[in-house]
Design a protein around this nucleic acid. Sequence first.
DNA 1: ACAATAAGTCAGAAAAAGATGACTACCCCA
DNA 2: TGGGGTAGTCATCTTTTTCTGACTTATTGT
Lengths: 103, 103
Amino acid sequence: MTTPKNPKSEEGCPAEGLLKQLSGKWKPQIFRLALESPLRFNSLLRQIQGSNRQSLSVALKELESEGLLEKTVIQLKPLHIEYVLSERGKSLVAVFRQLEGLL
Amino acid sequence: MTTPKNPKSEEGCPAEGLLKQLSGKWKPQIFRLALESPLRFNSLLRQIQGSNRQSLSVALKELESEGLLEKTVIQLKPLHIEYVLSERGKSLVAVFRQLEGLL
DNA sequence: ACAATAAGTCAGAAAAAGATGACTACCCCA
DNA sequence: TGGGGTAGTCATCTTTTTCTGACTTATTGT
């Protein structure tokens, strides 16, 4: 179910919420890596140097609740969990690329 | 003088810096108002309800140092100071609009 | 049985961001 | 001379974010 989150919508401007969702520590990096391939927790933790479990956990949870990433459990033993770009996430790709283009 | 700021470039991703520059409290609102017309400090303070001198001052200073806004002194007595979108700022307009388009 | 990997959670500490209230400096008007 | 407007700064407090280290649950390999 897509609950794109809107608890206290105190936005004075439409772009604000979206901007918040993409900023926040580690989020741009996570998002960027998600453009390339599905993400897995411990792997991400190793890839993003300087990051930590807690923060990544929170960031992933937020990106998920914002509807940018989707979490899937892969039935392998031991269980693997993958985070992949949702449809909404994909719709932001263009913006992201454009942002990268602008130095 | 364009010193777009890059003191501790610890970015793991190009879009990250840009994202940071546009987020931060009040910044999206400031930027959005700047799309419409030049900004003046006290006027802004009155327009953006909930904001405060200090935070706006900091935000404007940052937007300026990031090269998104330009500060000009208007030689009227008493002096007026205007913040207008820089060239770089204008280059972000498209992104901003696109962001607004995406819900 | 023991160590290791996967994916986390939790409480508390530290750091960063934001808000508040007082104050500055300059100018204008009555 | 005092009040009001311009555009801020400064020190301090509070709130929010982020980090650290310990701990958890489940499974696999030796």
